[in-house]
Write a protein that binds this DNA or RNA. Structure first.
Lengths: 341, 341
DNA sequence: CTGAAAGCGCTTACAG
DNA sequence: CTGAAAGCGCTTACAG
């Protein structure tokens, strides 16, 4: 009595075969309306629910996707996850979250688990594929989409902004406001996605406007708040007499604002700061942070959409560069006005 | 050749039965060391990985748990999720995230999906159980743990702080700093977990210190930033001449700080503010927010630990009230000093 | 120490 | 329109 009813129990009760119940459950054809009513009634009475595990064993589809993040506890990740989960749910898929913790071993471990659990697809967030991952992915033979990252292998499409261009635009924006002495707070030096291209965009913008780009104008952090404070302090110590800073993440920008305040600098009166990401934090700091907006939620949705497309049609999706834009708030001062006054 | 190898393929290759391969895979006894080597070699050569779906069908255990959140994109949720995921992973469990979106229908929908997918347990975050949920949960017959919420049913243990006491302590802290004209920004009025007890704690602290607790000193928000700004503005409009505010979430506290600044009030010089949660935002706003610390990450871990205990031992875990504490930063001014100067 | 066989709860040709 | 039966990839008594 306390046993969970199976399709057999339903069949017995409705006095039909399990095949018929299965057909009705799956909306296939091949039964009279009378039979259908009888079966539906039995299902209702018994409180029957199909076992998705058993179903998956036949179908070889679990309607579950895996998402790998390097850091779960950042707004960046949760905004993306929100978008992914949203789309997946709409399409009746579930999402398994994996926190790789910026650690290769944990990623490999997760890949093995996800393989065993037969997920229908995988989304990598902010992670660069190593050869080991590639080997494992090839063996898994399921669709993969990268978010805020990219790979040369066409089998692994990505969804991201044009980081180089976005950094170029952020820097140009500062220049447009009359700034010339612009420093940058970059993320981890060796990150080929979120650091190198942004540095290049920053340098290119300076060069295109006749400003020299010097290494000592760049300080390195790790994208998190504390490192932004440290980087800003380092920059200040160098005595560069700067008027503006471009930070490669909003958290680092907030950290920089903190360091500036501690050094007696007012933002934006004494120092202008522009961030990157436009996570909710940006609008919650004071003054609200001018930053490069990345449509994180949409990026998550797009990535999920591509993944499911690949999972259900076996075709490979195309990469997508989503538009970024400068979100003007109150941390950048226009010095042009001052000069012309 | 491109087919994924199964346990049968391994058995054939190692020239043993599938039963033997299964035993070796599961670390059971009953085979010679020579056989073991042979099988392990075959597994290695073929790149075989057991199919967890098939295994689950036998075991009736999926080693997967579900977590339901009302809002994925808040630091509050992601800190909890981080703790849950962390513990689950250590114990070889996977976690399925569900964003219920403050919407009953979506919760019921998720419960059905999680039931079909045969999760081994469920964690509800910040959600009050309705009768409909209870019915479904009873039918699922799997362990459930509540986080930042609670329920009278002893089958559903919880992990949370003592909200009433925490609010009492926050308010008392303000009083200890010489404040008497203390307003409160509460969360959604009808929330029996995160609103009622905190309001009671606030009022009790006032009363215990001989200060009248009046309804007009309370403004209501929804825990998010924007509502904090609005609530603060409403409070200011009432002309209460207040010196301090207790906000029931850090986001609302940050919003209140914003409104205060816009009204020309300096924090903490003109207005003291204390928040609730101690999410990372609290240390990133300026000045850093004094707040009630909830050990979110640990709460997530504890909840997961209780859930797995229940899932694996069939005993029911006990509820846990975790310790909160006042995290002193820079948004509360001590007026005692001033008065005595 | 080892294997044949039943079974987990479904789906899906196949036959009627 | 309907059912018997094989099969999905494992595990687990049971027998030897």
């Amino acid at each position: 009595m306390s046993d969970i009813p199976t399709i057999r129990d339903v069949a017995r009760r409705a006095d039909v075969s399990v095949a018929t119940v299965s057909r009705i459950l799956n909306g296939l054809s091949g039964y009279s309306d009378k039979t259908k009513q009888k079966v539906l009634a039995a299902i209702e009475e018994m409180g029957y629910r199909p076992n998705a595990i058993a179903r998956s064993l036949n179908n070889r589809r679990t309607h579950t996707i895996g998402v790998l993040f390097p850091a779960l506890n950042s707004e960046f990740s949760s905004a993306l996850l929100h978008g992914i989960e949203d789309y997946a749910h709409r399409r009746q898929y579930s999402v398994l979250v994996c926190n790789t913790d910026v650690d290769g071993r944990r990623t490999m471990n997760y890949l093995k688990v996800l393989r065993e659990k037969q997920v229908d697809g995988l989304i990598f967030v902010s992670e660069v594929l190593t050869d080991a991952y590639r080997t494992e992915l090839a063996a898994m033979n399921i669709p993969v989409v990268l978010v805020a990252s990219s790979d040369d292998d066409p089998r692994y499409p990505h969804v991201k902004v044009d980081d180089r261009q976005a950094a170029y635009d952020a820097t140009s924006y500062l220049i447009g406001k009359g700034h010339r002495r612009i420093a940058m707070i970059s993320g981890t030096a060796d990150d080929p996605i979120a650091s190198r291209p942004r540095i290049e965009g920053y340098e290119q913008a300076l060069l295109d406007h006749g400003v020299a780009a010097l290494p000592e104008w760049i300080a390195y952090g790790d994208f998190f708040y504390e490192s932004g404070t440290l980087a800003m302090e380092a920059l200040l110590k160098r005595g560069l007499d700067l008027t503006a800073v471009f930070a490669a993440s909003d958290e680092m920008a907030a950290g920089a604002m903190h360091a500036a305040a501690r050094a007696g600098l007012r933002v934006p009166e004494d120092l202008s700061i522009i961030g990157y990401d436009d996570i909710r934090l940006a609008m919650m700091v004071h003054p609200p942070l001018t930053t490069v907006h990345q449509p994180l939620r949409e990026m998550g949705q797009e990535a999920a959409a591509k993944l499911l497309l690949m999972a259900e049609s076996a075709q490979t999706a195309r990469s997508l560069i989503v538009p970024h834009r400068i979100m003007e708030r109150q941390t950048v001062r226009d010095i042009n006005e001052i000069n012309s006054t």
